[in-house]
Amino acid sequence: MPASESPAPASVADVAAGLRGVGYLPGESTALVSFLATRLGKPVLVEGPAGVGKTELAKALASYLGRELVRLQCYEGLDEAKALYEWNYRKQLLRIQAEASDTGWEAVQEDIFGEEFLLARPLMSAIASEEPVVLLIDEIDKTDQEFEAMLLEVLSDFQISIPELGRVQSRTHPVVLLTSNNSRELTEALKRRCLYLWLDYPELEHELEIVRLHTPDLHEAIARRLVEVIGMVRELDLKKPPSIAESIDWARALLLLGVKDIDADTFTETMSVIVKHRADMDVVAERVGLKLRSPADVA
């Protein structure tokens, strides 16, 4: 085993402690499913609203397990050439043109379909890597079904077939995380191969812990108030409810501004940190703004 990788975790508690150690505070099921993923070698499908820490989980896992993180960011129209591998056409053409004209075709052919002309994209590099890696396939709900079909071979057998070169088998077993923002239903075949984890907005205490971790200098009372207000805002039916990342941003903003308490004025001023839609701002200002004390009441 390469020296850089930590030993495989032995229990759920290990994983939970390890993730905390690198600065990610997992929920109850998160640690369990991550543990199962490392033990069983199955990919994990992480779904949840935007900004709850799905990508962060992959980074934290990579850090905890001592593996490199290979990231494939998915977008609409992503195809095999960008995800799997691509032949470097330019280099091949140049090679052919640079070759003296009397060289036989056999020699040239062997040359131009060699490893040096192969551009390895994220999936390929994850499979062919010497060291064990964590493979993050981010926002897979943005791709289409053809891409998912192509992924199936990679995810089930961890091998890639290249017609000219043959099969590339993975030497180490990567830990695979797929994240999805739930904007569409993924195919059954893909879900079948994965363990499922739903990350939701955290409970009050949990979120308070996360905020305290990222902004330790913020006063405890303000942090608690902050988390309560965020909870109130989330309950409203908004187009885009605030995520954990926004809570942390707000905490940092409040710390920077040096506020003593979250009253109606402060809230109206800093509201744009957590609410990102014009229509939402009106709703939030009306509902939540009224519940907060105005500065005159603060004795």
Partner: peptide
């Protein structure tokens, strides 16, 4: 892989494999 003494863990583990959407 998991101990069965905790109902939470038992249920979560089963959910991770049997329930694949919200």
């Amino acid at each position: 892989e998991i101990p069965w003494t905790s109902q939470e863990d038992f249920r979560e583990a089963l959910a991770a494999t049997l329930a694949k959407s919200q």
